[in-house]
Design a protein around this nucleic acid. Sequence first.
DNA 1: TATGAATGAGTCTTCATTCAT
DNA 2: CATGAATGAAGACTCATTCAT
Lengths: 203, 203, 203, 203
Amino acid sequence: MSYRTARSEKHEKIIRAAARMFAQKGFFNTSIAEIAAEAGVGKGTIYEYVSSKDDLFFSVFEWISENSWAQARIGLSALSGTASEKIRTIGRSVIEQWNSMEEYYALMMEFWCATTSSQLRDRFKDVFDHMYKEFRALVSGLIIEGIERGEFRSDIDPEAMAAALVGTFDALVLQDWFNESFDAVNTAEQFLSVVIQGMKAPG
Amino acid sequence: MSYRTARSEKHEKIIRAAARMFAQKGFFNTSIAEIAAEAGVGKGTIYEYVSSKDDLFFSVFEWISENSWAQARIGLSALSGTASEKIRTIGRSVIEQWNSMEEYYALMMEFWCATTSSQLRDRFKDVFDHMYKEFRALVSGLIIEGIERGEFRSDIDPEAMAAALVGTFDALVLQDWFNESFDAVNTAEQFLSVVIQGMKAPG
Amino acid sequence: MSYRTARSEKHEKIIRAAARMFAQKGFFNTSIAEIAAEAGVGKGTIYEYVSSKDDLFFSVFEWISENSWAQARIGLSALSGTASEKIRTIGRSVIEQWNSMEEYYALMMEFWCATTSSQLRDRFKDVFDHMYKEFRALVSGLIIEGIERGEFRSDIDPEAMAAALVGTFDALVLQDWFNESFDAVNTAEQFLSVVIQGMKAPG
Amino acid sequence: MSYRTARSEKHEKIIRAAARMFAQKGFFNTSIAEIAAEAGVGKGTIYEYVSSKDDLFFSVFEWISENSWAQARIGLSALSGTASEKIRTIGRSVIEQWNSMEEYYALMMEFWCATTSSQLRDRFKDVFDHMYKEFRALVSGLIIEGIERGEFRSDIDPEAMAAALVGTFDALVLQDWFNESFDAVNTAEQFLSVVIQGMKAPG
DNA sequence: TATGAATGAGTCTTCATTCAT
DNA sequence: CATGAATGAAGACTCATTCAT
């Protein structure tokens, strides 16, 4: 195993430990000492890989973003069928994606919070902005495709629809995470049927 | 002014000061000293009214919940027109309500975060659960009303639709707060048109 | 005892404790915890009176400057006799002054050092500069007086003489402090005799 | 190049790097890592040549002492002329010597400080003591020579004069270093004229 | 021999909370 | 009741030193 490999493995070990602890107890309630213990390294070792607690937090964010969205994007790249079917697939995919990384949802809340008061506000905002922009573009692209194919009415605003839909997916995941008896997959299914019905071109 | 009144006025002064500071800098980045200064009282005085910083945080949450939703409920009680119109009115009302208290939105994020890691997790969760249940019940009631009147299709699931719609409102407010160039009112208008169209009974 | 008095007494207690510890172990080898213990207060209490360790260091410097030089100045104000006698008196006075505060000499070394590498470099330099300027002015004033009275030759440079003399006093004190068998008072006496002899007007 | 030579060259490289850094930032504000970087070696390598940071500090002191005084002594060995001329030459020489190694003056201050609080106090004191003793002996020897030659009065105390003169040289160098507009060479010239005049045998 | 990753003791500093006035 | 001085636990971070390679 090369030096670079060993180094980046330890780096990831630290990031993962931090992710677990931040998810469990929140950023402010987690101490560097706890993260070091969780990662099985000395306190000082953390600072060989990140320059501060804030930096570690942001590194966790980047790590999560890359790993989770990377996978999601792979799944979405192979969409096929009508625009309606593609949109349904996306909805299902997003929710499943989130469910599969349930343990990190609390972490996402922490990141959201960080956008309101952290020193890192701007760095977080930028990444979130970027993520959402990309996602909205994907959805609005499908809606435009549907309009062009004559599948959807031409008087709907693709941007507005995309923004609302993307937000709704998130909100459903949130409710799911919040309330164990909530069935996000089914709710999304039903809701999307109605929305797609509402977008359908007459006749 | 009675003793009790004087006491409860000072209590509210403290809660308000705490709300302002927590909204501005976040729970963990705000010190009791700052809140005392903002409220114009001594540090020790805070502890005459709340038992701890956590307790103060939760008090702020209760205060916000009561005050903001109280007003919202007043506005919604006087709904009239068809179910569709009522739903539109609710959407507009919720968004306007939030816009009018923009300064507290960051605070809501803090509360959300608290549900993930705070000692107070359960108390926060209970109140949020209750709030959402109430809100969903209002919306699903309107959908049922629409179905009974023959305005909406009878094969739609009122609970699922209500859950999704409530989520959508939240999501739009969030995007509005997050992105200054976003027009939540207009987006909601367009999206609701599509959703209502999708729920419409045929013919 | 008034509040202000109590406060400033505790402030001085902390400064004195810090002075003792810094003198004994040096700035960098003394921890805030030690100073707090020496002063008989809690660690946090220190920060009620100074804003940082650096600030405490500088406060000690100011306190020493005011107290020691204030006394010295009082003694020097009542000089009488010929210019030569006055200069002798000053020499004796400075050395006695230093000897009487032997315990703080190590502290003065610390302050000197601080002028080379501390964050506080400029603040220290300013005060030192001011102190020396004042002292040199006193001595050069006496030399000018001697020249005008015809006691000293008119071709000597009062500023240069004053600078050298003031420095020599310090250097003698340093040797005294450094080497216990050194007799600064006597050495100064002899040296001043020679210097005054050298300044004497012929005839 | 032999093994021993290579080793001692690397040793000196480290000492020089440490000297530069200590002079620039002070002992406590310089880290071993910085010194290693400045020397262009690994952190661990330092410990192949010195046993601790303190030891390195003292090594720098010894290196400076040997090198600078060695050169000074060479210059002084070839003194000629009357005792007065020799004393003048010494003064000029000392001040020029210091000016030529201005960058290390801050380091000397560090060493002085170390005599007050370091673990190494005694080792430093010994070397300083030795240096001063040697220097005083040189000067008092010249004064005795002057007395014997009838150049100086016989009632002056050579030891006391030497101690004071050595102190004066130091003090002038210090003022020069401290205050850029100070002219140590000229001041020394003037002051020495007066002192020599004061020592002159009558007639 | 040379290296630099790993370490944990030790530091300054903050701040919620208490309590004497 | 109101206050704010006092406190010490807790936390982020630094760095001299070690040691496996």
